[in-house]
Write a protein that binds this DNA or RNA. Structure first.
Lengths: 149, 149
DNA sequence: CTTGTTTGGTGCGAAATGGAACTATATTGA
DNA sequence: TCAATATAGTTCCATTTCGCACCAAACAAG
């Protein structure tokens, strides 16, 4: 019997890296011109988690530098997909809100993604995904908590 | 009982995206200055899969555009970590070989990564990773085969 | 052959990424 | 209270990413 070997983390991360590339390509194929995955991620986060987040809250949620979030939001705002207003509770920060157009783009993308996902589901057993999902969630939460604060 | 819902793909991809970010940060923290994850990925691929691959073979393996591979290799070559020679079997292409220095950088990175992975293993059950790994591998293979050629 | 098409690789330019330094506001503590 | 420190966000800049256009070698068909 083999010893538990931490290298399995490395191997799992390698698989995850490739799947991330492939799934990002699937998403971006459905996005309107000028938008890429990080833009969609923000629209989706504001819809699913809570509208009116601050840039820093989102940067932390996605584990990206705040400078990257600044730029991503600039693009979204220039395209009229989000709008920002001052945060009355903290003069340093601002809050980001979806516009109707932003909500619409997000909804259309989800809709056009549905047949793509359905095609994946036709060739890969969804049950297996349901099994690994809680492990992935726990791993994400664990790693998120483990990084040096 | 719920219908099998393809949206679980979306949810799994979301978790995978965040884990990819976090794991990449762990790797890059161990890399020497001037190298980032994609550089290491090439060194690792040449070591694990086969030395002397062509740029296109690697671009396809990692699912990145060939122009990105050109640039990544330029950095690695400038730092003396790989060297390229003409491909005698095909005048259009070239083959990429690790140098001793490249092998050394890769080995040192793996070594310095070991305690990081061990620390992860101390807080997260490796058995659960061993369970999901084959599913991830199958998913990666399936998605890789499913993209339009 | 030789002409049309495919394939490997590069140069270029636009956009994205992210570190460093900076400003402004908030918080902490002596 | 007010000085020291921490935090949110931006600007600036170097590097990365990747689409497009291009070149050269290979291959395919007549």
């Amino acid at each position: 019997m083999a010893e538990p070997n931490p290298a399995v983390f490395f191997e799992v991360f390698t698989e995850i890296g490739i799947i991330e590339q492939l799934s990002r390509a699937l998403l971006e194929a459905q996005l309107p011109a000028g938008l890429i995955a990080p833009h969609f991620t923000v629209l989706n986060h504001l819809t699913r988690v809570a509208d009116g987040r601050t840039p820093m809250e989102m940067a932390r949620a996605f584990q990206i530098p705040k400078t990257s979030m600044t730029h991503t939001l600039k693009v979204l705002e220039a395209q009229g997909l989000v709008e920002t207003r001052a945060n009355p509770e903290d003069g340093r920060s601002k809050r980001v809100w979806l516009t109707d157009k932003g909500r619409d783009v997000r909804a259309r993308t989800i809709a056009s993604l549905a047949p793509v996902l359905a095609e994946l589901a036709a060739g890969f057993d969804i049950e297996r995904l349901l099994e690994i999902k809680p492990v992935l969630t726990d791993l994400r939460v664990f790693m998120d908590a483990a990084r040096d604060p």
